[in-house]
Design a protein around this nucleic acid. Structure first.
Lengths: 110, 110
DNA sequence: GTGTAATATCGACGTATGTCGATACCACGT
DNA sequence: ACGTGGTATCGACATACGTCGATATTACAC
């Protein structure tokens, strides 16, 4: 005799995780994480020119990554004169914690 | 007179976030998050057949997503007879917290 | 061994993503 | 007005990704 299939079958969670996946996708590039880490550690907002100078990427590519972070509401841009400065969104950690919590319920915390 | 550039310039963080980005990338698909959420809520391990039955995906696609989660060490597979059962890796939440913390330092917690 | 059922792998396809050069836009100094 | 310099957008390219049908693999029942 063989091993029977586990009974009863498990129901797949019905919730839609499209939004959370979009958040994680925005975090799924090392250069974007570098940008976020820099913003998180900076006392003030950070000039785009610092990113183009400090990252091994051309200026359009930096701008592209900043746009992805903007679209995900992870950063905010503000123009002062010729330069544009970026800041980390205030609720980044809260949103990430919420996304994580919606996937892994409290039970897993223990 | 114009507004001068912020001085001194901010140094871009030197750390390499390739590993953390790989983790977030594995989480960047709604179906994979559904799989993880199901595993996190299940009392026991979950049969692959429950995923193929419960997800709007064909069997090869389900297997593909499970492989990505396996390669990211987010889940573990175990064969019992004909069926294969998956469990959530024990340190998933710890690893995600660590990745998040390496990008956003404690300071942002407040 | 043969047949059947569950899972994994392979090959192909369309689309999304990261990157860059060229260009447009915008603010400033002259 | 004109030129200059910082930033954003556009178009193109190579690669990666999500999906599927076909096939291979594994374990069981007969």
């Amino acid at each position: 005799m063989s091993i029977p299939r586990s009974c009863p079958p498990t129901d797949v969670v019905a919730a839609d995780f499209t939004e959370q996946a979009g958040l994680f996708k925005a975090l799924g590039d090392p250069h974007r994480l570098t940008i976020l880490a820099t913003l998180a550690r900076s006392e003030s907002d950070v000039c785009v020119c610092d990113f183009t100078a400090g990252l091994p990427l051309n200026q359009p590519t930096v701008s592209h990554h900043l746009k992805i972070l903007r679209d995900a509401n992870l950063v905010a841009a503000r123009r002062r004169g010729t330069w544009v400065y970026y800041t980390l969104a205030a609720d980044v950690r809260r949103r990430m914690g919420a996304a994580l919590g919606s996937v892994l319920p409290k039970k897993v915390l223990v």
